Amino acid sequence: MAKVVSGRMTADIEGDFVVFLIGMRFNRPWHVVKAAYAFRAMPRMLKYLRERPEAGLLHAMLAIGPDGPLVVQYWRSVEQLEAFARDARAPHHPAWKGWNRLIGYDKPYVGIWHESYQVKAGAYECLYGNMPRFGLAQAGEHVPVERKGSTAAERRGVTASQA
């Protein structure tokens, strides 16, 4: 279990970054084999990316929601994210082709989705209270809240006159 850091902490990351959410939904749970294909592809992709930090993935974490698994990813740039997705030598490309062959968009056994958000430098805010290093703090630095501001607005860089 990760070491809990007492008190209030925040994240600090230099420059712009991308938050990429990707998940799947089991529309017809009895099609376990098809769902397993989609579920097994992500660990291979993440292993590949962790072994190649120059590809741009800063951190990834898995969560299980009421509709299925979700992976939260932090990327250095949208260009690096898209380059990985299109690279025929990287594991995303064969997984994407396999998905289209096995399931595609005309067989609703398993749903997939993704969202990406480009975050400008400093245009974010986070707070971790009595938590281990988590989320964006794992992609960047885990710093005491006082370093960036005691309020959410201060951590976003908003001054009192702008509020």
Rank of each mutant, 00 (worst) to 15 (best):
K3R: 00
H93R: 10
R52S: 04
P108H: 13
R76N: 03
V4K: 00
A36S: 01
E125W: 05
L57W: 08
F17R: 08
H93W: 12
P53Q: 14
A163M: 15
A55Q: 09
A88H: 14
C126S: 14
L127Q: 11
P53K: 11
S6K: 08
D106N: 08
R28N: 00
V72C: 06
A11I: 00
P66G: 12
R89K: 14
D12M: 02
A11R: 05
Q118W: 09
H31D: 02
L70K: 06
S161M: 15
P108V: 12
H31F: 03
Y124C: 12
I64L: 14
Q73W: 08
E14F: 00
P94M: 11
R155I: 04
W96T: 06
V33D: 06
L136G: 00
P66Q: 13
D87T: 04
W75F: 13
P132Q: 12
W30P: 01
W113K: 07
L81A: 03
V19H: 02
A83C: 03
L102Y: 03
Y105F: 10
K47Y: 11
P29S: 05
S116T: 05
R156P: 08
V19P: 02
P91S: 15
L21N: 10
K97Q: 11
E82R: 09
V145C: 13
K148E: 10
R25S: 06
R44Q: 10
D16Y: 03
G157M: 14
M9W: 01
I112F: 04
K3N: 00
P94T: 11
R156E: 04
F134D: 09
V110L: 02
N100Y: 04
G122V: 03
L81Q: 08
K34I: 03
V143R: 02
A55S: 12
M1T: 08
Y117P: 00
Q138I: 01
N27R: 04
R89Q: 13
V33N: 04
S116H: 15
R76T: 02
P43A: 08
R50L: 06
A137C: 07
V4Q: 00
F17A: 02
S116Q: 10
A38Y: 09
Y48Q: 13
A163V: 12
A88M: 11
R89H: 13
V71T: 07
E54R: 12
V143K: 06
R25W: 07
G104N: 09
A152G: 11
T151L: 09
V19Y: 03
Q80L: 06
L136Y: 05
F39D: 02
V72A: 10
M61F: 15
S77T: 14
G140D: 07
W99P: 05
M9F: 00
R133H: 05
P91K: 11
E125V: 15
H114C: 13
Q118K: 10
R155P: 13
P108M: 07
G15V: 00
R101N: 01
G135Q: 08
H93A: 14
W99L: 09
A137H: 01
R50Y: 14
E79A: 04
R52D: 04
L46R: 07
A63H: 15
F17Y: 07
I22T: 07
T151R: 12
Q162V: 10
N100W: 13
F39I: 01
G98E: 15
G56S: 10
F17G: 01
H114R: 14
A123T: 03
A90C: 12
Q118P: 01
M61K: 15
